[in-house]
């Protein structure tokens, strides 16, 4: 007797979000990136289509990231002071499909770069690379509320992904995205209920759900990644069952989470049993990324080129349809 394979019949699917705009679309990008569209749990190709593969955005900062350890700084040693050159290296040498530009230098406690300086940095990066851009603020709400609208206006037509919108501070970035036609990252730290509510608040302002990507606030490997996985799984199951307010694609700041772990930073002399620090940090980032891929992350924001290369290989293998 033939075995009948039981397959889930999903009623919903993840939205697709397109980032970037080519010349014909009013921008200057040479490629665009589309994420989402998944109609099943991650990589279960036999249950539903997964039309777009997960992508890796490489992180560039608008200031020299003094706090990064030497292993992480080494591949970019020649470009750390020049965001445009840094972005170009990520694309030309390491094959980044997107650039994630963090305007960390705008932080009033650091370089306190003005909105005009930030705009000029964004424009330089846009000029240096052809891939689509993700631009996020420094994390200081008041400053970001000034900087992000200026960036959105200056980059009108480029169809950026900008962020972040949070429950207590979402209006100015969402308004800027609506006026200048960009996409928004909605950040909720490990809380599926607030994630859903924030999507509702954003759509009530008038931004379409097809312009929202959520950041569930990832935890790094060893630092709460299992909570992130549960949130991702819950959200994905909700979306597949037809919950539109949870059917937004997901972005995760993998590099940020992995490289602040003690395991990525402690020298081998402190913990001889842990092995070489250089390999350890790279693997910590790669393992964080691969675990989150299984939860259904669509855009992985990563830092180290070797980790990027390992994860890209993993994505390639996962996208091969399995026969069941």
């Amino acid at each position: 007797m033939a075995v009948q394979i039981i397959k889930e019949r999903n009623t919903g699917k993840i939205n697709t979000v397109a980032i970037g705009a080519t010349k014909e679309q009013g921008g200057t990008r040479t490629s665009i990136v589309t994420v989402g569209g998944d109609a099943a749990l991650p990589f279960l190709h036999f249950e539903g289509e997964m039309p777009h593969k997960p992508v890796i955005a490489m992180e560039v900062q608008s200031r020299v990231p003094a706090q990064w350890n030497d292993v992480l700084k080494q591949p970019f040693a020649d470009v750390l002071g020049d965001p445009a050159a840094w972005a170009k290296k990520c694309v030309d040498m390491y094959g980044a499909e997107l650039i994630y530009l963090k305007l960390s230098g705008a932080d009033p406690d650091l370089e306190n770069q003005s909105p005009e300086e930030c705009v000029s940095i964004v424009k330089n990066v846009l000029a240096a690379v052809g891939v689509p851009l993700i631009v996020v603020g420094c994390g200081n709400e008041d400053k970001d509320n000034v900087v992000l609208p200026a960036v959105a206006e200056a980059a009108a037509g480029e169809n950026l992904l900008i962020g972040v919108a949070e429950q207590e501070n979402y209006k100015s970035v969402v308004a800027a995205a609506m006026v200048h036609k960009h996409n928004v990252i909605a950040l909720t730290p490990c809380d599926i209920n607030i994630c859903k509510q924030l999507n509702i608040l954003i759509t009530e302002m008038g931004l379409g759900l097809d312009r929202v990507v959520v950041d569930p606030g990832a935890g790094g490997l060893g630092y709460g990644i299992e909570y992130t996985y549960s949130i991702l799984e819950r959200g994905r199951l909700g979306a597949l069952q037809g919950d539109k307010m949870l059917s937004t694609p997901v972005i995760a700041t993998v590099g940020y989470e992995a490289w602040r772990a003690k395991e990525a930073n402690a020298p081998a002399s402190d913990f001889p049993a842990w092995g070489e620090q250089s390999e350890r940090g790279v693997l910590w980032e790669a393992m964080t990324a691969t675990a989150l891929l299984q939860g259904g992350v669509h855009i992985l924001v990563m830092r180290h080129p070797e980790a990027v290369s390992l994860v890209r290989k993993n994505i390639g293998a996962l996208m091969v349809p399995q026969a069941v």
Partner: peptide, 16 residues
């Protein structure tokens, strides 16, 4: 536990 809670759940339920 069929729908995920959010503060506007009554409204969202009607928007299905």
């Amino acid at each position: 536990n069929k729908d995920i809670y959010c503060d506007s759940y009554q409204k969202v339920f009607r928007q299905h």
